[in-house]
């Protein structure tokens, strides 16, 4: 599982961070850090998927596998 961030559009709104803080971290310069590799934990992965589909700017993409 890999996350691709569209750096052109990501505005650091932090919605993803609210859903899966283990993986997404927005710093005070509004830059999104993604902690990879993403843990194997099924519950965390479910929330990562939810975070990706919840981005209001549609700046996140998920590559499974």
């Amino acid at each position: 599982m890999k996350i691709i961030v569209n750096r052109q559009t990501c505005d650091g709104n932090g919605v993803c961070m609210g859903i899966a803080p283990e993986v997404f971290d927005v710093d005070d310069d509004l830059y999104l850090h993604v902690a990879e590799p993403i843990p194997e934990d099924g519950e965390i992965r479910a929330r990562v998927r939810q975070a990706v589909t919840s981005c209001p700017i549609l700046a996140l993409k998920l590559v499974e596998g």
Binding site: T9, D11, N13, T53, P56, I57, L58
Partner: peptide
Amino acid sequence: YSKPALSKEFLQGKSEHSELFLP
């Protein structure tokens, strides 16, 4: 589509019409 983007990215011309739609 994404409503939060309307007053921000979209009106500022930072995102295109086609980029507003949810998958």
